[in-house]
């Protein structure tokens, strides 16, 4: 009965939404409101105004930088939330041993992971640093590092990977993204602009472009490092609990 009611509700919702779709502006048309209102200025002026070749990065970090600051805070908040729920590992305590699972992974897998993880990290560094000229950016790079940590931790166990990125390295870097934003934002104030102004009005004109690019890269690196560390810490917190389950049951 409940299922039928749910199905009917969903069907009604689907019909409503499909009706809306049939009334929406046509897809891919260059005359739609989305394509004519705010966008032309971004596409035409982004390069000279934000000094980033990739318009998306310009929008993320510069025009809508405040959103991204909120987003970075969301990641930090997620870490704080996960740690509040699961608890954080203590300093100086080793959680889990080399390999607690019943099946130690084979030599083939270990060798392959050892071989591939450096490439993944290299790729992520490239993604972070080239955010303003090509597809990519801090979040993507950070997520790739987080992914490589997941691979590494599943194969080698928590002990090995938390020895490579110990708590005293992770903890200070977790807030790097928010702090980077706040730093750049306040620098904009010092330069006479509003919060999150990259191109300081008071700084000499010829210094301008390179300075803006440097600030952009600084923020990108902050986001990348912060994101990677947050993802790693969340992973460690979850895996640690998993191992405790294994010992309890």
């Amino acid at each position: 009965m409940k299922r039928v009611a749910a199905l009917l509700f969903i069907a009604a919702l689907a019909v409503l939404l499909l009706y809306v779709v049939s009334r929406m502006p046509p897809m891919g048309d260059p005359e739609t409101p989305t394509a004519t209102h705010v966008i032309p200025r971004y596409l035409e002026k982004a390069e000279e105004e934000t000094h980033t070749v990739n318009v998306i990065t310009g929008v993320i970090l510069n025009y809508r930088g405040y959103d991204t600051m909120g987003e970075v805070t969301v990641i930090f908040c997620a870490l704080a939330a996960v740690l509040a729920v699961l608890g954080r590992e203590r300093r100086g305590v080793i959680h889990g041993f080399v390999d607690r699972s019943e099946v130690p992974s084979s030599t083939i897998v270990r060798t392959m992971v050892r071989f591939i993880v450096p490439f993944i990290i290299l790729f992520s560094v490239y993604t972070i640093l080239h955010g303003e000229t090509s597809p990519g950016g801090g979040f993507q790079g950070g997520a790739i590092i987080g992914g490589s940590m997941i691979i590494f931790t599943t194969i080698f166990g928590l002990y090995e990977s938390s020895r490579r990125i110990p708590l005293k390295v992770r903890a200070p870097l977790e807030g790097a993204a928010v702090m980077g934003f706040f730093l750049v934002g306040t620098l904009g104030l010092v330069g006479g602009g509003n919060f999150l102004t990259y191109a300081w009005p008071r700084v000499a004109q010829d210094l301008h472009p390179s300075l803006v690019v440097w600030l952009t890269v600084l923020v990108e690196v902050g986001i990348g490092l912060g994101g990677a560390m947050v993802l790693t810490s969340i992973l460690f917190a979850m895996i640690r609990e998993e191992e405790e389950i294994a010992t309890v049951s």
Binding site: S105, S106, M112, V113, F115
Partner: peptide, 12 residues
Amino acid sequence: LSSATCGHAIGR
């Protein structure tokens, strides 16, 4: 490389 390793790890 990765696909073969994955299959191997899961199967094993």
